[in-house]
């Protein structure tokens, strides 16, 4: 895991939010969580990473924030996490992933098309059971949402080189 792998996502998230919702999320200090602690979110977009590093990056929202963001976007009040909301979140995640690609050009990294999971379900994509998962909290007026990063450690690629 290198900050160079993560920054493109962080920046891309902030840009996209700024473009779509007119707000630039604030960044809280990142910290580590265990995989169990990633479960308490209502809807998540999952982006797979392969190549120089392997793992997943997950963008997680709770219902309140998701619904309120989508309301802003569609111009009408949305109250529940329905199909439209899910689709919108999917689209937003897609765009964030797409925009971040440019930041990876130098690295041999590939990112997959994001998939969306709804519900407080277990995310099975974490690569190894015990790797520490980095969580980056974003704060918007509506509340918080998270970026979780779980990337494998590759010996030939860590900070020693």
């Amino acid at each position: 895991m290198k900050k160079e792998y993560i920054m493109p996502f962080v920046e891309s998230t902030q840009n996209v939010f700024h473009e779509f919702f007119g707000i630039t999320p604030e960044l809280d200090t990142p910290y580590f969580v265990k995989k169990e602690e990633t479960l308490n979110w209502d809807v998540s977009g999952i982006i797979g990473i392969a190549g120089e590093s392997k793992g997943v990056i997950v963008l997680s929202f709770n219902e309140k924030v998701a619904v309120s963001l989508v309301s802003k976007l569609v111009g009408r009040k949305v109250t529940t996490l329905d199909e439209d909301v899910i689709d919108t979140i999917a689209e937003v995640t897609n765009i964030i992933a797409g925009n971040s690609k440019k930041g990876f050009e130098e690295y041999r990294l590939k990112i997959s098309l994001p998939s969306i999971i709804k519900g407080k379900e277990h995310v099975v994509f974490w690569p190894k059971q015990d790797i520490p998962i980095l969580s980056i909290p974003f704060t918007v007026p509506e509340g918080k949402f998270m970026l979780f990063v779980g990337l494998e450690k590759k010996i030939t690629n860590d900070i020693l080189l």
């Binding site: 895991m1 900050k3 993560i6 990142p30 980056i136």
Partner: peptide, 20 residues
């Protein structure tokens, strides 16, 4: 900057992994 914090946090993760 926040990016520096991110960097340091990641380094902490590396230490955790090595100890593990």
């Amino acid at each position: 900057s926040w990016e520096n914090i991110l960097d340091s946090t990641i380094k902490l993760g590396t230490i955790q992994e090595s100890i593990d």
